[in-house]
Amino acid sequence: MALATGKDFIGLVGHTPLVDMSHVVSAGGDVRVVAKAEWTNPGGSVKDRPAARMILEGERGVRLTKDKIILDATSGNTGIAYACLAAARGYRLKLCVPANISPERKHMLAALGAEVIYTSAQEGSDGAIREARRLFDEDPERYYYPDQYGNDENWRAHYATTGPEIWEETGGAVTHFVATVGTGGTLMGTGRFLKEKNPSIQVIAVEPDSPFHGLEGMKHMATSIVPKIYDRGFAGETLFVSTEAAHAAIRKTARKGGLLVGLSSGAALTAAELVAGRLIKARQRGLVVTVLPDNADKYLTERFWKEA
């Protein structure tokens, strides 16, 4: 009799549940809103998908070997994914992270044994990117620098997994795909896959409404270093969400849906509700699909929970 075998970290990534959020966002009937619960990935966020693919790609291309240090810039979730992968596969890891990421994230990175370089909170994620580039340029032989903002394996992870999962789970009935953008990987990869399956699917990007925002992991593209893998012309439309609207959506999701979701998830649901609302108003049918990048575990000390 063969011995039963479990899965390793990478084997647990993906195949996240599709959750019906229609009642939370005041949709239903002919207009439904469903969302991928990405916090069920082993590292707790959607970022396990691209991080796993970028690490595997590095191993295959022999750019990542045991004597190299994995180096990248991240505002948190990718860092946690890398930290899990590096620990499980025996690599050293150095992360450049803005100093104002949540204390929960700092604890997680430390617990997983990552070396963290905190960059200026004033400069946000762009400051972290600049520091990672500087370190890499100083000693390129020492590091494997996946560069999630410029690595095609980032969006390909979603093209290979998130897209096909959504297509299958909706039986091809998806009409709108709504995704928040940080690196743009989720939107580009999933969007490309879905568009190839059915060109009439509408892809909608979600950005913070202001360069100064509290939507961790998201980027206001007009005022940021636009990631190399992100094509701002790809989405048919970009919706801009305020931090306060995302907070309100998070509280509503907790109280009406029994789910504690994270900041970008709140932004995604705000935009999905807007899209669903238009369909309802126009008396059209629709299946709006979005991605909830993480849950609230890392944001429970935030003040917004206490607001009205």
């Binding site: 803005p98 100093a99 104002n100 949540s102 204390p103 909170a121 004033q122 890392k298 000390t301 935030e302």
Partner: peptide, 12 residues
């Protein structure tokens, strides 16, 4: 005086 987006209760 510094102004920092809280991105999750963080200190600078």
């Amino acid at each position: 005086v510094s102004i920092v987006p809280s991105i999750a209760g963080g200190r600078r």
